[in-house]
Write a protein that binds this DNA or RNA. Sequence first.
DNA 1: TTTT
DNA 2: TTTT
Lengths: 176, 176, 176, 176
Amino acid sequence: MLNRVILIGRLTRDPELRYTPAGVAVTQFTIAVDRPFTSGQGEREADFIPVVTWRQLAETCANYLRKGRLTAVEGRIQVRNYENNEGKRVYVTEVIADNVRFLESNREGGAPQESGGYAGGNNNSGGGSFGGGGNAPYGGGNGGGGKPSTPRNNNSRDPFSDDGRPIDISEDDLPF
Amino acid sequence: MLNRVILIGRLTRDPELRYTPAGVAVTQFTIAVDRPFTSGQGEREADFIPVVTWRQLAETCANYLRKGRLTAVEGRIQVRNYENNEGKRVYVTEVIADNVRFLESNREGGAPQESGGYAGGNNNSGGGSFGGGGNAPYGGGNGGGGKPSTPRNNNSRDPFSDDGRPIDISEDDLPF
Amino acid sequence: MLNRVILIGRLTRDPELRYTPAGVAVTQFTIAVDRPFTSGQGEREADFIPVVTWRQLAETCANYLRKGRLTAVEGRIQVRNYENNEGKRVYVTEVIADNVRFLESNREGGAPQESGGYAGGNNNSGGGSFGGGGNAPYGGGNGGGGKPSTPRNNNSRDPFSDDGRPIDISEDDLPF
Amino acid sequence: MLNRVILIGRLTRDPELRYTPAGVAVTQFTIAVDRPFTSGQGEREADFIPVVTWRQLAETCANYLRKGRLTAVEGRIQVRNYENNEGKRVYVTEVIADNVRFLESNREGGAPQESGGYAGGNNNSGGGSFGGGGNAPYGGGNGGGGKPSTPRNNNSRDPFSDDGRPIDISEDDLPF
DNA sequence: TTTT
DNA sequence: TTTT
């Protein structure tokens, strides 16, 4: 009935933007969050947590996030599952983000920007001028076939494992 | 850039539903949250935290919440201020909730409901069937004059202190 | 650098209490959290999220939680991994809880308890009378051999898959 | 029964470190958190939220935080009250932090530090090497008189308004 | 494999 | 002014 996650950490790689067959933007990245204690061997460890964003927020993340950037993520834990090649059920846990904050700005650029960056979530419904969800530039061509079945029902592959082409996710997977 | 609060506690009184001059529903209540430790004198204390909800969620809370009910609240801290009768600036801290969960159902009723109750937040924008924001039965007499200035600018009274009539809040105060 | 999760949901089964070879209590359960929207097919879905608690909190959860109970969990996301029988690396995502609240009391019992239940976290260091960590009745036979290597390094089995006997976790895995 | 707050924002001023009559360190600062929407007049507003830290964390914050720094704060909402000069009860809402993250390092310094900074919370009880609570350098002699009564009972002044000398807080106010 |  |  309530499912809330807040993370602050650094991207392990550049984010990956794809589109569902119906043209909905979805961006994935992994955030490394240092643990607040050291291991038995005195080493500092981290958790590597996969994050997924949809629509407008996906586009913004793909545009502004880069490997190594300090980032805050707010969202919910989602556990989906699919059947792999050997017919075994695989469970995938991800954070579906609805709010992402860029805590470090472009550093390659010249000017000493203060910090900041800003990616509104999807959590507005009223008349606010904040972000927006429906008017995203979902980009276009995505026609191609593909198996439009939803991954959490009867998929036989990780919908995210198929790089390069429109991903194997139907609109049914759209959160919010 | 990020402001998130989650509380679980009990209502100290029945919630109060009012309408802004423009007819927007707003409900207030206070939630008592026990502290996770005892005081120096060995007494268990609590924090009494004011909560505000708007629009559809306000109507739902007014309908289903009652004094004493165990309730989960998700939202953000807001600090507004106004000038009181003596010309002094008064600061008011409230949690603006966008998600409220009813952890206990009606007990006075007959049937032994399991638990539950459900109040969707405002954080949906997509095509989900979840809650809703825009279609609230705002209705209600709300014509009346009143000072339509916004409380956080130049109000001379607590906009919530004026019981009975449409409250002294302009649309400018609408969050989200 | 920050990793915080708050969940409210229901246990899918009774919790399972075990002990590490060194005698440290660890309890696992899964919490079902309904999603705040319906699927494309109009069905209400849920995420099934594994939770782990340690030491005193583990004992308390094992004593008071039962299948179906509404429960609030506060903790952090942890991603550990191990090598399975076929030599493949498997990733396991769990919420390591440091605070658990029992939102429903025993129902099978007779008296109509209001609600409540209480499981303090580990997050006290001062002089509070709150919970406690060090004085847990770890007891239990736990001498036995077993592979004392840590699961996130070089384990070949899921340390939690071996029911019945002291589990395959070394003290290195102790959080906090 | 649960009270959790997470904020990311910037310090409005340098933090203020004081000591209770018994020598316990307490640091206060205010964090400005931009609202995720613009006001009716199209202006971007912020909430100014008072934060309090105790003991070791107080010392670390006083040492490393400065006006303008981007900072993450994790804690709980506390509402205390006292009687002011005119015999009126005044309510003060603060976030009692148990975890503070420095998202920006010293900029005045020379070297272009990546970011970072680190302030462990109090929420460790195990054998971790994380932060610590009990062994804080509470600083020393501060014996001096002062009214040792607790502010939330019968104080006649804001315990935090009396700058310069050991503050008007007894050990009873120690959280955790 | 899942809870209400 | 406060809830269980």
